[in-house]
Design a protein around this nucleic acid. Structure first.
Length: 708
DNA sequence: TGTAACTCCCCTCCG
DNA sequence: GGGAGTTACA
């Protein structure tokens, strides 16, 4: 292939423990003239790449690790690599591209297609979860899965756990048992980290240690019930994919489907995902992973940085390529990013350097309070808009979904359209869940969580009646044709008859998905008005859902796609909907990963928000908050504003009393104590009782327009 | 006995 | 705004 092979870490070469150091060594060895890639027959479309990118793109067979700093053209490189492979004759249908979101996969494939002018539609692109969903429909039988299994989201699984908890009588008042969402988190942590329950409780949930036995029985029942009902939760998708690969025949067959596997955002994968990859690559070693240790921000999903560090050991013969040239931001913004990461221990010392010219310095804006923060951000957005920076080229980033609440109100008031990413999803809205539950019943009548949801909408039907109904249905082998024979309370008679008729007719006719959704919506519409006081926007959501359904051929793929990759809520548009084709982006810092904008506003950059007070328990969490902030600032191309209010309107509290303070604010006592210790125990200036106006003015004068 | 209404409390990040 | 737990009512 004409590419100079610059490194090999296979047996026989010196083994430096840390691949980041190896990569560094390679760079020195390669530096300057030494490395002049010559690719015979180089297509024009590779001309724009720098030497490192070109090396990565045209890498031949064998494992490849690309360490890519923020804004170094990672997506572009991966897209070009896909294009290159196709250009080299690899069949698109034999390429597997694993990304963090479906959106990322789609963007990359579109770009690859534009680059090499060859169709990429057949490439297997998506998240680990969506690939698991797809492959398990074919290979799931070895692990006891029927092809028509359904996938439930986080709240469904919490509901199931809550139901089991209630059935076991673990809700007594004397002893507080962890709530269902906590039960779910503990469960998830245990299966993903593979640590024993006892250890997880001790380390992560010390206040739940007493519940250990109860949790154990709940988990056992949960697992059995999911199997009987043929429903999987998010974690199961990965667990079962991995489990299926333990079967040698399946591993061989699945691995043989793909000539090349490419993985994006490798720093945010967990042990199970790494194992899946290893099992898929036992015979064929063509695997490319891309990542940046400085951007690992998903340890709460049990992601571990070890995966990227140990990759060369797991895949002997790995070639490592490092990308440091930043194409996104101007140097002053990179300086901030580099400065943020400088104190981080164990960091990989790559220093980004800018290609783009620009002297505009980032601005640290100190505001009097939250109101002023909102005003400042809105004013600045409009000013940039007048300068010709479209709203879509501007983004407001924050730590938690609700941090944008006040801003959203003001944006609506000023008629600035916006679109919010992250936070509450379309799917989590109650009315969408209701309709989806109806659809799920058609797909998998054994899905009792969906039954409960639907039945309890009916007049006079509560948990008990629903439970009896499902038991009755089970006795009748889940035959929807006999629904009418099951007795229901008199109050529910009319509604139940309508339900039975709707389900039955849909069961018999083979309608397109959108038509099914339409008929279910008609049935459901009368409930909207009685169940909720704002039925109109909710009805619009359901119509939206119907529109989305038109893109799908099968009900099964519609349901699982919606669960695995929920669309962003459409109700969040301000101003007349769909009239403006330009809108401002609001996003959590997590959801901003991989994106870039000309102007970025990071708001609520105050203690307890960034870093989050929930993430200050240990040094590792604090370091993750640092990386998260690094991700946020490196999204900006030209303009960066870091904004924090000096004052939050909490009640007065007795200074120096951590406990009282904690009771009056959102902060946990331990964190307040730490905060106080860190500041010499005297004052909590930013959160202290209201400072005088003079103090505030002086402070603002000092901070305002301070540049760094 | 089971459902509906009411009140209090708590809000991470995501597939 | 919604979930969890408690009380009021049929």
């Amino acid at each position: 292939m004409g590419v100079v092979s610059i490194s090999a870490f296979g047996p026989g070469t010196s083994r430096v423990a840390d691949p980041r150091i190896q990569a560094q060594v390679v760079l020195y060895a390669v530096g300057g003239m030494l490395y002049t890639p010559t690719v015979p027959d180089t297509p024009d479309w590779l001309q724009g790449l720098n030497p490192q990118q070109l090396q990565a793109v045209t890498h031949g067979d064998g494992p490849l690790l690309i360490i890519a700093g923020a804004g170094t053209g990672k997506t572009n490189t991966l897209a070009h690599r896909v294009a290159w492979l196709i250009h080299e004759g690899v069949q698109p249908g034999r390429i597997l591209l694993l990304t963090f979101t479906r959106r990322a996969a789609q963007e990359m494939l579109n770009r690859a297609q534009a680059v090499c002018q060859a169709a990429t539609t057949k490439v297997w692109g998506g998240t680990f979860h969506s690939m698991a969903n797809r492959l398990l429909r074919t290979y799931g039988r070895v692990v006891g899965l029927q092809p028509e299994f359904t996938v439930m989201d986080e709240s469904d699984s919490a509901d199931m756990l809550g139901l089991i908890r209630a059935q076991m009588g673990l809700t007594s008042k004397e002893k507080r048992f962890p709530r269902k969402s906590t039960v779910r988190s503990i469960y998830s942590r245990v299966v993903n980290s593979r640590e024993p329950l006892e250890l997880v409780l001790k380390k992560e949930y010390p206040w739940c240690v007493e519940a250990e036995e109860g949790l154990r029985t709940i988990f056992n029942t949960y697992t059995k019930r999911k199997h009987a009902r043929q429903v999987l939760d998010y974690d199961d998708l990965l667990l079962f994919w991995n489990l299926a690969l333990e079967d040698a025949t399946v591993a061989e067959a699945m691995g043989a489907r793909f000539d090349h596997i490419l993985v994006d955002e490798y720093q945010d994968t967990n042990i199970i995902q790494a194992e899946i990859l290893q099992r898929l690559r036992q015979k064929n070693h063509n695997i490319t992973v891309v990542g940046d240790d400085a951007q690992s921000i998903y340890s709460f999903r049990a992601a571990t940085i070890k995966n990227i560090l140990e990759f060369p050991n797991q895949f002997p013969g790995t070639t490592v390529v490092t990308l440091e040239q930043n194409y996104r931001s101007i140097q002053p913004i990179l300086d901030v990013g580099n400065a943020v990461m400088k104190p981080a221990p164990h960091r990989y010392t790559k220093n980004l350097f800018a290609v783009r010219e620009g002297k505009q310095k980032p601005v640290l804006v100190t505001c009097r309070d939250e109101d002023e923060q909102v005003k400042v951000v809105c004013d600045q957005i409009l000013e940039h808009l007048e300068q010709g920076i479209k709203l879509q080229q501007q983004a407001v980033l924050f730590r938690a979904g609700h941090h944008s609440d006040q801003l959203e109100i003001e944006l609506a008031r000023r008629n600035i359209p916006f679109h919010k990413y992250g936070g509450l999803k379309f799917l989590e809205a109650a009315h969408v869940k209701d309709l989806l539950a109806l659809l799920r019943i058609l797909e998998n009548p054994r899905d009792d969580m969906s039954w409960f949801r639907v039945l309890e909408m009916l007049e006079g039907v509560g948990p008990k009646t629903a439970e009896r109904f499902v038991a009755d249905l089970e006795a009748r082998t889940y035959d929807l044709a006999v629904l009418g024979q099951i007795t229901m309370p008199a109050a529910a008679h009319d509604q139940f008859t309508a339900l039975a008729q709707t389900l039955n007719s849909l069961r018999q006719e083979e309608l397109p998905v959108a038509a099914q959704v339409e008929r279910l919506r008609r049935f459901y519409e009368p409930f909207l008005a009685t169940l909720y006081d704002n039925p109109k926007p909710r009805l619009r959501d359901l119509e939206q859902l119907e529109a989305v359904a038109q893109r799908y051929k099968s009900r099964s793929s519609f349901i699982s796609d919606l669960t695995l990759d929920p669309p962003d809520t459409t109700a969040d548009f301000a101003g007349p909907p769909f009239k403006d084709e330009d809108w401002l982006v609001l996003s959590t810092m997590h959801s901003a990963k991989g994106c870039e904008w000309k102007a970025v506003y990071v708001i609520h950059a105050a203690d307890g928000m960034i870093p989050s007070d929930m993430a200050t328990d240990d040094d590792d969490s604090i370091e993750e908050e640092r990386r998260l902030f690094y991700v946020a600032v490196t999204r900006a191309k030209d303009w960066l504003y870091v904004v924090f209010p000096l004052r939050y309107y909490y009640k007065r509290y007795p200074l120096g009393d951590a406990h009282a303070y904690a009771q009056l604010t959102r902060f946990a006592p331990a964190n307040v104590q730490r905060l106080m210790d860190a500041r010499g125990g005297t004052s909590l200036e930013t959160h202290a009782g209201p400072p005088t106006d003079e103090e505030i003015r002086a402070k603002i004068a000092r901070y305002w327009d301070r540049r760094f």
